[in-house]
Structure formats: C-alpha cells, structure tokens
Amino acid sequence: MTFLSRHRIILPVVSLAVLLAATFYMQPRAMSYFGLNLLFNLAVPIALATIAQMMIIMVNDIDLSLGAFVSLAACVTATFLNDTPMIGLLILLALILSYAVLGALIHALELPAIVVTLGMSFVWSGLALFILSSPGGASPGWLRTLMTVKPPFAPMAVVAAVIIAGVTHLLIIRSGLGTVLRGVGGNARSVERAGWPVIRLKALAYGLAGLFGVLAGMALVGLTTSADANIALRYTLLSIAGVILGGGEFTGGKVSPVGAVIGALTLTLAASFLSFMRLSPDWQIGAQGAILILVLTARLIFSRKGAEA
C-alpha cells in the first residue's frame, strides 16, 4: 500500500476511470468524439477554477471568493472584452493584479484568508452586478471559436484538460519557483529564513490564482456565449472539492495540478452520471456528496495503511 500512498495521483485517476466506464456503460452514445466533448466541455472552466483554488490552497490558504471572481471575469469578458478589447484586457489585468495585492495584504497583515476572501466575494459579486445587472453580453468571436474548435483525434475538452494539467504541472511541480511556492505552504518560516521574500511569493501565488480565475471566466463565456452575474457561484465549492478530490490537502504544500484537473473532470462527470441514472434532483446533491466522501474515505484508508507499513 506504500505504493498508493506515494503515488497519490493513482486514486483520482482510478475514480475518474471507474466513473467514466459506468457512464459509457449507461450511455454508449457518450463514447465518441462528439459525446466526450459534450460530457466534458463545461469541465474546462471548472478545471481552470480548480487550478486557481489549488494555487491558494498550495500556500496554505483558502479562497471563498473564487466563484464570484470567475463570475466577474465572465461579465467583463462578455461586455468590455467584446466591445472594447483593450479596455477589457486592462480590466482583466487589473483583476489579476488585485488578487496579487490581496495575497500580499493577507500575508503582511497576517489576516485569515478565509475571512478576507469571504468579504471580497461580496465585492466581486457587486462589481459583476454593476457591470451586468441583467443577464446578457456576448462572447468575443475568437473566444467562441477557441472553445468550439474541433481538433483532430481528441475533442477540445480533452485537449484543453491535458494542456491545463501539463502546463501547471511544469509550473508547480517541475520548476524551481513552483517548488519554492509549495514550500511557502509547507513551511513558510523555513522559506523565509532561506532568504526568499515570502510576501512576494504569496503575491505571486495569489496572482496566479487570479490569472487562472480570469481564464476560467473567459472559457465559461466562450462556452455559454454570454454571462450573468451569478453564472459561476457554484465554482467556489466545486473548485475546493476538485483540489481535494485530486489528491491535494488542506495542510498546504501538498497539491497536485494533474490531480486537480482530474478532480474537476470527476466532479463534472459525477453530476452527468447521476442525471443519466434518472436520480431525482432532490437526491442529486446528496449523491454527489456521497461520491466525494467515498473517494476521500478510500484515500484515508490507503494513507493510513501506508503509514502503518
């Protein structure tokens, strides 16, 4: 069992594979280029949001404003980025920057991230309502094209998931900077004593979260073709669940980008699977929770056995 506890990526992969097999068994139509895309295209923004959440969890914080932030990014994308691309781009950059500043503030003033982000969620929601008080806007043409592109061999959703996982794996696991960033979550004091400016590293982690949050909002608008101020509110909890499902831990420093992307795909698939099962909506949320608890229990059992061995 030490094998499983050392390779924590195995459990998320197995969960996804089992769920995928069950879905294919119930709905053979899903087993095609077209079907896979329909099944997973809405998982792309969730995967990006999960990566954003992972950046925060990596430095031992948690972000309760992510859903509202992604909604705001979606609203900016569907309005300013579409009508006046330069201004839209500037606003999105400002949003990323404000996330970085937030990270620095949280570290400098030793504020609890959970409180600050909860407060910010109302700011982001308010701004989103201010920009788009009633549902509307339109996706920039290039974004729509990008999100509905039909690459050869594998559908867009799968290609995008692989790219997101690959890039963030290189950034967080392989690069030197990524290792230091994970160190901040693991033991910030050691990193500081080793001469690293922790405040800048935290700002960087939050800035990366902001970047992926903005990307999530853009991807979402590319799929839905328009936005509303509440469009991504569920992403806060989905992203946290995705990180944990993918093998990340709240203790900081222990995260897996590939696992996070797989976690996001699993969560999306779980919802579709339950819908294919014709489960009553009253039970669906509960059943989604049950799947989550099942996977986490499995992980706990494996890690306990690993510790004993």
């Binding site: 329909l38 099944l39 295209n41 809405l42 979402l220 799929l223 839905t224 509303d228 509440n230 469009i231 991504a232 509110l233 569920r234 999306t268 919802a271 579709s272 819908s275 294919f276």
Partner: peptide, 12 residues
C-alpha cells in the same frame, strides 16, 4: 438553480 448546471443538463 444555476445556468452552468442547466447547460450541462441540456448537453446530457
């Protein structure tokens, strides 16, 4: 009651 959920429902 979320648009993203309903979009997934329609695709299903």
């Amino acid at each position: 009651n979320q648009a993203t959920e309903q979009a997934a429902q329609i695709q299903n």
